[in-house]
Design a protein around this nucleic acid. Structure first.
Lengths: 245, 245
DNA sequence: GTGAAAAATAAATACGATCTATTATTATTT
DNA sequence: AAATAATAATAGATCGTATTTATTTTTCAC
């Protein structure tokens, strides 16, 4: 009968509360139960809970004040680009198509310009990483998980090759998008996947060949293709909702 | 001689450690002193320190492991777009011109497109906020602090009018840039400020008039003007360094 | 000697009890 | 009715102790 139940409790409390908040299970402005109660209800000590609360405060999701308690802050003050916050929003249970579209919109702003910069600034190592990732994508076409990983690797490598830390940071947003998309969006449509691979090939090689203009336009082409896929997915989700209603 | 020194300790420990880490006072891969020592040296209890450490972990700056201690994570894994992380990097003591240039680079990618979207999507309230901010900028031309605040307000309002939470989140990066720029960059050069105001006027009004194309190009013009100013500042910093060497 | 298993160890992780500081609310006074 | 003082609720912070985990050292068999 060990009372003290292992490790990683703070992390898990952060995730639980983070997901609840992202899913609006606690609404903006709402006040959480007092520390002791919340700790009890989560089966952890007050210290562990407090550490979790501090982490969430650091991400802008909540604010604490003595006597008044712990309050959910307005959504537009959250650190939306925080990797954890992104992943909580991507929870397949509660993620909305708007979420994917918002991410896609910013991808369409950042990625073509990142590709353009990468074509100019990539070192030989950068290029090697990019091409290796493309190879993996091709190799693992049949294995959804590994294909997505390689896809993420490729986009990450392109952003990194822009040699701008702020641009590079978008890898988390893109990774979140790609993971969510692969879960929510798509059963593997053979023809779409082939086309997608080809588009990735074109970007990778424009960068490898220092063609900034084509890197830009190939990135745009790729994201247009993605957009179509999201819109279809959204459409099919709507159909589903109609059916279940 | 109060041992228990008031409140807000966690916040202040987070800031102290955050700044040290951002300034590479602790280097990547380095291991921090053990909790008890570090807590003692900062004059706080171990719990307060632990809460601070958890916050910094949440922002990707450090990672903890039993037995091995608390280690500084590689820079490219930090949440660079976190408002706190941004502000720690903007510390005038240690901020580099590269920092400003990196931020300016991403501003040049995001803001014109945000302005374009704002021209299409802004509600009447959005437009009112944008124009009010512009008015303040004009009104407080002579008061550097208030002028910068109004400048930040204006850019924030434009991003908000894009109605995309991820784009809007950039307000922190822009605010950091503008604050740092006003501190580091510029004694107020009358002619530059007048030109700057004019450029802001043009953006605000293209958005108000739903002119997406001009909003885009006016945003580009404004940022080009900014770039010149950063490059001059960088140049003068280099001169200063030469003289002091 | 060498390699693998076992023990010691050092660090973070977690709990619980207790005290403090702050502040919203309530009660009191003017 | 308004200003002020008391109250109580809640987060903030500390201390001490036990647990867990991963590394290092030691032991022991081969």
């Amino acid at each position: 009968m060990k009372k003290t139940s292992g490790r990683g409790q703070v992390k898990s409390v952060v995730d639980i509360l983070g997901k609840r908040i992202a899913a609006a299970q606690y609404k903006e402005g709402e006040i959480l139960p007092i520390e002791q109660q919340l700790a009890d209800s989560l089966g952890v000590g007050r210290n562990a809970l407090r550490e979790a609360v501090k982490v969430l405060s650091g991400k802008g999701l909540i604010a604490t004040a003595p006597r008044s308690g712990t309050r959910i802050r307005p959504r537009d003050e959250w650190n939306m680009l925080d990797p954890d916050v992104l992943s909580w929003h991507a929870d397949p249970e509660t993620a909305t198509p708007e979420f994917l579209l918002a991410l896609l919109e910013i991808r369409r702003i950042i990625e073509p310009r990142a590709a353009e910069l990468a074509a100019v600034r990539a070192t030989r190592e950068d290029v090697a990483t990019i091409l290796a990732a493309y190879d993996d994508m091709q190799r693992y076409q049949e294995d959804p998980d590994r294909r997505v990983s390689a896809d993420i690797e490729l986009h990450t490598a392109i952003l990194a090759a822009s040699h701008n830390a702020y641009i590079s940071h978008f890898r988390y947003a893109i990774a979140t998008y790609l993971k969510a998309h692969s879960k929510i969006g798509q059963r593997s449509d053979r023809e779409k996947l082939r086309k997608d691979l080809e588009l990735h090939h074109d970007i990778a090689w424009s960068i490898a060949r220092c063609k900034a203009k084509s890197a830009y336009s190939n990135s745009v082409r790729m994201l247009n293709h993605g957009r179509l896929r999201v819109e279809e997915a959204e459409h099919s989700l709507a159909e589903e909702a109609k059916r279940s209603a």
